[in-house]
Design a protein around this nucleic acid. Structure first.
Length: 284
DNA sequence: CGGCAGGAGCCCA
DNA sequence: TGGGCTCCTGCC
């Protein structure tokens, strides 16, 4: 995810959503599927991609009506206050395959480790791209990942996640999984298809649905959101009693929040997530 | 320094 | 419903 603050001024990327962005001097550089993207920290709309197939409108979701969206989710007093505290925070639209592979790497680990795994995948299996005299590696295609053995993926530092990466790469490479087509499907249908993938549970599915498949009502619940719900939403039924949510509790809580916040519940989720991380002093 | 908990979870018995 | 999974960092 990324958080874009003040589109025309200060900007920060929250790596809890977008894992492969980094600031170098006055520019941000990021990996978006097969492209390297660069934009100016001072003016994010001054954006180029290499090769040129991504626009600022696309990745910053400039087509979203932020006024209307913020109005909808601000019926909740906490989110209303966070909208004021973090002006300009936005969702970023991610490459669907990269998003799926990224969150398959995200289970039972932390953000610095996720970044390390993904950089390792890019370096080993991604195409090299030169931008501004610097060498980058694009995100590997599903075919490239499918050509790698599970052992090679383990050697890239993925641990037990290698099996899931391999399984998803195979489905995409063989054409049995078409993420693009899921953008046109309903939330329920797209989620059901994602849950068939080995290694994808409700949390990862909701992340892909929100960040890449245009399901802005998806409400992913990770450990930070679970804490936010426990601390601030007393009226929720079947709240977590232990550290971890069962699949049943997850669906119950997530659907309650989707109903509560409405068709752009995912934006509310991002404010809560960003706030919980900020409050805990996390930068990355 | 060793030991242990924890980290955008999920699968399996 | 509980245990295990890779492996690294932070803390005691």
């Amino acid at each position: 995810m990324s958080v874009l603050q003040h589109l025309n001024a200060e900007l920060s990327i929250n790596s809890g959503q977008e894992f492969l962005w980094e600031r170098v001097g006055n520019n941000w550089y990021g990996i978006h599927g097969g492209s390297v993207v660069r934009f100016s920290a001072a003016d994010p709309l001054d954006l180029e991609s290499f090769p040129d197939c991504v626009s600022a409108e696309e990745i910053f979701r400039l087509d979203d009506d932020m006024g209307a969206i913020l109005g909808e989710i601000s019926h909740d007093p906490l989110v209303k206050s966070l909208v004021a505290t973090y002006p300009g925070l936005r969702l970023m639209r991610q490459d669907a395959e990269q998003c799926l592979f990224s969150f398959l790497c995200a289970s039972n680990t932390n953000i610095p480790m996720i970044r390390r795994m993904l950089r390792s995948l890019c370096a080993r299996f991604g195409r090299q791209v030169q931008v501004d005299g610097q060498k980058f590696h694009a995100f590997p295609s599903a075919k490239a990942l499918d050509r790698a053995s599970e052992a090679e993926l383990r050697a890239a530092g993925l641990g037990y996640r290698a099996k899931a990466i391999k399984a998803a790469a195979r489905e995409i490479a063989r054409g049995s999984l078409d993420l693009e087509s899921l953008k046109k499907a309903s939330y329920e249908d797209a989620k059901a298809r994602l849950l068939e993938i080995y290694g994808v549970g409700p949390k990862i599915a909701d992340c892909v649905l929100l960040f890449s498949l245009e399901k802005l009502d998806a409400f992913p619940i990770d450990v930070w959101i679970a804490r936010a719900l426990a601390n601030h939403y007393d009226w929720l039924s079947d709240k977590k009693t232990s550290d971890k949510l069962t699949a049943c509790q997850y669906e119950n809580l997530s659907s309650q929040m989707r109903r509560y916040f409405g068709r752009h519940a995912g934006y509310a989720q991002q404010y809560l997530y960003y706030h919980m991380r900020q409050a805990a002093g996390k930068r990355w």
